[in-house]
């Protein structure tokens, strides 16, 4: 089979349009995974056992069941209980919830890495619990876990084709539709592969930039520059 360049050129706009759906789902799903994961990590550290166990249970459940089943549950079963959401919204929710279980574990490791003395100093200055998390603990916990959190961004975009199972037309689904209509799969599937490769590379570069940007070394360098 030989690549038909004009065919590839013709389907490019359609694929790019679907790529926007992929990127949107990833961006929103990732934003949700980052925030919900942080909430889960903090709730799991609650001293009230019932609360921490509930959070732990949710995390374990989500991590131990396939993403596809969770997606089906949200899309096909929740409507029976009166909650019907558009496919795209369901997809974002699914990605967000699924990945929050993983990011919460990363946050947990980050939070546990902060020395006890930081809590004690903050407490002795009479910060509230919430202020201690927000101003003392989380700002220190996040820089070291940026690479681990970033891995899940790359992981998530590669999971977006699963959304096609609930009829979200993202880039992979669009490629399959093109293939079944034209009986040519080589170009669309190859192009989708290249898309994922490029986006993953861009994401990785972005994460490295963020990692460097938030590091303590960088901040100290800046402080020295200002001084010098």
């Amino acid at each position: 089979m030989i690549v038909k360049w004009d065919f590839a050129w013709n389907i490019l706009p359609v694929l790019l349009k679907a790529a926007i759906t992929t990127l949107e789902a990833t961006a929103l799903g990732y934003a949700m995974a980052l925030s919900l994961g942080l909430v889960l990590a903090i709730v799991r550290r609650s001293r009230v056992r019932a609360i921490s166990w509930t959070a732990g249970g949710i995390i374990e459940f989500v991590r131990s069941t396939p993403f596809l089943i969770q997606l089906y549950f949200l899309y096909f079963i929740l409507p029976n209980y009166g909650l019907t959401l558009p496919a795209f919204v369901t997809g974002i929710l699914g990605l967000g919830i699924h990945y929050s279980a993983y990011t919460s574990e990363v946050y947990r490791a980050g939070i546990e890495g902060i020395p006890q003395g930081q809590w004690e100093a903050a407490r002795s200055l009479n910060f509230t619990k919430l202020q201690i998390y927000r101003r003392i603990i989380i700002p220190q916990a996040i820089p070291p876990i940026v690479p681990a959190l970033g891995n899940y961004l790359v992981g998530m975009i590669k999971d977006t084709p699963i959304l096609s199972a609930i009829a979200v037309v993202e880039i992979m689904q669009r490629a399959k539709i093109i293939g079944s209509e034209t009986f040519r799969y080589l170009e669309p599937i190859t192009m989708v592969g290249i898309f994922f490769l490029l986006v993953s590379l861009v994401f990785s570069a972005f994460i490295r930039k963020v990692e460097r940007g938030v590091s303590m070394d960088r901040r100290i360098e800046k402080a020295m520059e200002i001084k010098g």
Partner: peptide, 15 residues
């Protein structure tokens, strides 16, 4: 509010 403490290992906020 009435009490302040200084620790052996300082515990300054490094960030």
């Amino acid at each position: 509010k009435k009490i302040g403490m200084v620790f052996q290992h300082f515990h300054l906020f490094p960030h």
